[in-house]
Nucleic acid binder design. Sequence first.
DNA 1: GAACGCTTGGAGAGCGCTTTCCAGTCTTCG
DNA 2: CGAAGACTGGAAAGCGCTCTCCAAGCGTTC
Lengths: 341, 341
Amino acid sequence: MQSQRLPTLEDVARVAGVSRATVSRVVNGVRNVDPQLHEVVWSAVEQTGYVPNRLARSLVTRRSGTVALVVSDSETHDDDPFMSRFFADPYFGRVVGGLMSVLRPAGVQLALQMVGAEGHRRLVGDLRNGQADGAVVLSLPARDPLPGLLAEARIPAVLIGRPAEPLPISYVDLANETGAALAAECLVARGCQRVSMISGPADVPASQDRITGFHRAMARHGHAWVPSAAGNFTRESGEQAMRALLAEEPDGVFVANDLMALGALLVLRDAGKRVPEDVAVIGFDDSSAALAARPALTTIRHPLEDMAAEAAKLLLARVEDPAGRVSSVIYEPTLVRRQSA
Amino acid sequence: MQSQRLPTLEDVARVAGVSRATVSRVVNGVRNVDPQLHEVVWSAVEQTGYVPNRLARSLVTRRSGTVALVVSDSETHDDDPFMSRFFADPYFGRVVGGLMSVLRPAGVQLALQMVGAEGHRRLVGDLRNGQADGAVVLSLPARDPLPGLLAEARIPAVLIGRPAEPLPISYVDLANETGAALAAECLVARGCQRVSMISGPADVPASQDRITGFHRAMARHGHAWVPSAAGNFTRESGEQAMRALLAEEPDGVFVANDLMALGALLVLRDAGKRVPEDVAVIGFDDSSAALAARPALTTIRHPLEDMAAEAAKLLLARVEDPAGRVSSVIYEPTLVRRQSA
DNA sequence: GAACGCTTGGAGAGCGCTTTCCAGTCTTCG
DNA sequence: CGAAGACTGGAAAGCGCTCTCCAAGCGTTC
């Protein structure tokens, strides 16, 4: 068993026969150290099994080598089943994977922070205190005050998904309107005459954009009215919405995400409709669910991993140069043609 | 805009007209403070917008209020696409959700740590240095040295999934053998005569248990030989395995997880087999994929969220009392009967 | 040979916080 | 009325690290 106390700089210095300062310089790779001493110090580090104490280091450097992934859900409560849904959704995992692909090679850690409205002040304080060098924010509620607070406190931050209102803060987003328009074009090109839409929650910006984008594009093709039903991005809600829409006898449906589209497919099938012959269905996200569906889902590709990776890069750049320009990058979605439309 | 420097204890003390020590006592809710002073201090805290610096606090208390979720993947590399698969898999999200359900109410943060073999020493050092109070470990490789290192260093840790070899470390696990046996019973009870199995990777303990449990149970019913094909828990690999198994003309298939079962269902369908009439299929996990499948998947329920929550509780208890007993809790799986068998 | 510049390593002052120790104050009882 | 006891609150010593000075050593140059 190892001793209770971990070796400190002091210990290494004693073993190497130099001062703390010198060891610190060697460990941190600062020049101006005699190569021979360098050698001696490293072997002392080896010998003692020294590992720098990040906390102590961060306290003085004000750099933690950590970024926070903030999941802001000011509107939900602890016992809300919503959270478990959120984590189980591929969305969360894809974002984490994308972030990690950049953060890990950079040697930066990821800390998961969930905060409700009460936690905002504390979060901002913790962040400013050096708990993390910056934050990637996943804003769930429509009008989240958090991005504003972050901007005001000048904390390096990048949003995934545009803020509800213009803010001096970087973000990555998808051209949701374009994606929805792509779906509309495809449906129209197939000759669909009675097109419906299953949308996401009305108060989420991404969801809004898909709605307006779709409606606008359909209107351009003479379809001024599109029967719609809203879901909450879960498969179950997709089933429900589809059932409600069945009365409209649609021959084409655009669904605001794949999970709901999966539900729609199920309902259509149970209703004896053939897809795509009787009803064409287009999803959104190109998640793994799209490929697993039968018929395989024609969908709008949402390169979430790439976007998260880009967010991580933007954040790292901003941490490096906090004075840099606020920037945002918008990804163009593409239509992935499979069997459902 | 706020000032660059954050208020410190010192500042609050000055405003309140007391000493740093007193403010610290008040903020940390230590008794022995005159109620009146108490009041004064709080309003000074309010007024200055003081937020304690966790780093500084942790440095002295040796408690960080954070636990690490360690994803140990000593065998893969940074550019390995495996990682993105891992995060996109519902498994990861379900674990995070389960952990959070306990950690969040307890005010404990979660830090995500991915480490390869090279990072083990550093990780253990960081943990001992107080970076985190404990670790929940998701061991990917079969024979991972990390749990052993953690145990040796006496770091509070809980594994999700039993260690490859006995170790003085707590863990939560599923009775995988029992689960597999349940599937076997069900298939046999249906009267299946030609049963096959699609297994997971041969070197993962959970996967091994499902294999031996299934074979043993089948043997008990006189089926000494079960044709098998191994996948890697992805849907694609499930398709592949099913295609290979088609030659055996099975009338029942047990698949070691739902994702692969989804793939199997697809192949079966394309091969013109009806499920469950021609071939009965049983999955494992009862993930959301099971419900989304058509026919809905009969599967073995794996209460991953509950298990992760339990892991968090065990960890917290161990952090509280490091001398406590090493304990493990094994969950009993249940059969969820749906349409595929 | 003295003055100068350069490199190298040590001393020490914090970073913001907790916590022990101790002095001062107020009770209370003999 | 004085001393023992119970509380309160302050001073100060660190936690482990970085980094700014500063002193010492050495080679140059005039």
